[in-house]
């Protein structure tokens, strides 16, 4: 499990993650929801050892991320960040290959190549494998970055808004892929989502954040209630049942 114990992160005088204690990353898919600025990406940054907490402790499978060897952690935990850009001219294949770095340190084995091929196939990138990243559409590039994380083949996969820029088809395909990764490969996936209906459909559990704190943490179905969602987003949200599934209505 990924465990945070009384974790606080401040920028100057503003506290963006406020004394959070939570354990997540159980089997299956966990969705992390919450309004802009709630602290979701900051939380990922703390887990992914990009940020140091001002107080508290973050551990992955009992290992403190502050002291565990970075290289070992990279074989158990992969993080897709919210904004990805690369200065150098890389091809899709080059990028996906980097996902194997924690395992191979750059010397690819046959197994590494298989992982790379599988990731490229999964994300439907065969036609673009030799294209440079700056020659792709936003959604194609997003898929290339997801493929890199997939190639990393870790027990925990943290995805910060992976559906950015994706069209309807690729969005549902990626959510199905994520579901399959959890069900077939036993990956534990934590995914930041803004579309709560997507979260309710594909996630087993939903963690809701607001103002730097965790305000709800429950099975998806229990979060899909007007009073809970309304409190998280400060916006009236209606929830209807369609074909036995809860659907949130928040426009109009």
């Amino acid at each position: 499990m990924i465990a945070l114990e009384n974790v606080t992160k401040r920028y100057g005088s503003s506290t963006v993650v406020d004394d959070v204690s939570i354990a997540f990353g159980a089997e299956g898919v966990t969705a992390l929801i919450g309004p802009n600025g709630a602290g979701k990406s900051t939380l990922f940054g703390l887990v992914g050892r990009l940020l140091k907490p001002d107080a508290g402790r973050v551990s992955v499978d009992g290992q403190d991320v502050a002291t565990a060897p970075s290289a070992a952690l990279a074989t158990t935990l992969a993080v897709l960040r919210q904004d990805n850009s690369v200065a150098a001219r890389l091809t899709v294949h080059d990028l996906v290959e980097f996902g194997r770095f924690p395992h191979s340190r750059g010397r690819l084995t046959v197994a590494d190549r298989e992982h790379i091929e599988r990731a490229i196939d999964y994300l439907d990138l065969q036609d673009y494998r030799n294209r440079f990243l700056d020659e792709l559409s936003g959604g194609q590039r997003q898929r290339a970055f997801i493929a890199m994380v997939l190639a990393q083949d870790t027990k925990y996969v943290l995805l910060d808004e992976p559906l950015n820029n994706l069209d309807l088809r690729h969005m549902t395909e990626i959510m199905r892929l994520i579901r399959r990764m959890a069900d077939e490969l036993g990956k534990r996936i934590v995914i930041v989502l803004h579309d709560i209906n997507v979260a309710a459909t594909y996630a087993d559990r939903i963690v809701a954040m607001r103002d730097g704190g965790v305000v709800a943490d429950a099975p998806a179905r229990e979060i899909m209630r007007p009073e809970v969602l309304g409190a998280v987003y400060d916006t009236p949200v209606d929830v209807r049942e369609i074909d036995g599934k809860p659907v949130a209505l928040y426009y109009g």
Binding site: G48, R49, L50, P69, S70, A71, A72, L73, A74, T75, A78, V79, R81, N84, S85, V86, A87, A88, L90, F98, G99, F101, P102, R105, G106, R107, Q152
Partner: peptide, 20 residues
């Protein structure tokens, strides 16, 4: 030399890939 290649992805990605 290979770690240098990873650094072209930027610090956050390199850290994610286990570069100290």
């Amino acid at each position: 030399r290979r770690t240098l290649d990873v650094l072209t992805l930027g610090e956050p990605a390199a850290v994610g890939l286990g570069v100290d």
